[in-house]
């Protein structure tokens, strides 16, 4: 049986929609229901996985997400067997003229406390850590 700390999703834009429901379950099982951090964390995980769909195209069509809830932080690993990430092929948007694409990882970097990438055992592995804010009072 798949644990709530794991999610395997189809590497398609439709598959990315599974992240929201899974994150709801994860937050509930971790005692974080109503946390103000949930929406931003969904967006960041969604952007990491969307980057896999758009650029890595894993041949098995799968993305694997593992979550490790801590006391007040969430550690996430996103893995796929697709094309290695090339940082040189990924320009960050500048300050001046607005560009159309390239905002995904910029968003992740602003939401996550840490974000790292490595290539190991034929897999892309993205790791990110997020602080968990308590639920708003009232």
């Amino acid at each position: 049986m798949t644990q709530v700390t794991q999610l395997e999703l189809e590497a398609t834009h439709l598959g990315l929609r599974d992240i929201a429901g899974w994150l709801d379950q994860l937050f509930e099982s971790s005692g974080w229901s109503g946390s103000a951090s949930r929406g931003a964390i969904e967006l960041a995980i969604h952007e990491i996985a969307a980057n896999v769909v758009d650029h890595a195209a894993p041949p098995d069509g799968k993305i694997r997400i593992d979550a490790t809830p801590g006391e007040c932080a969430l550690h996430i690993e996103v893995a796929d067997k697709g094309t290695p990430f090339d940082a040189n092929d990924h320009s960050m948007p500048g300050e001046d003229a607005p560009q159309v694409r390239g905002y995904g990882l910029m968003i992740v970097e602003q939401v996550a406390q840490t974000i790292d990438y490595c290539r190991a055992d034929g897999r892309n592995l993205w790791t990110a850590t997020f602080n968990i804010e308590p639920a708003p009072a009232g």
Partner: peptide, 13 residues
């Protein structure tokens, strides 16, 4: 309810 960077890109274009 939710906008991601791809949705934003469509608006920016």
């Amino acid at each position: 309810e939710f906008v991601d960077s791809a949705g934003l890109a469509a608006l920016v274009k």
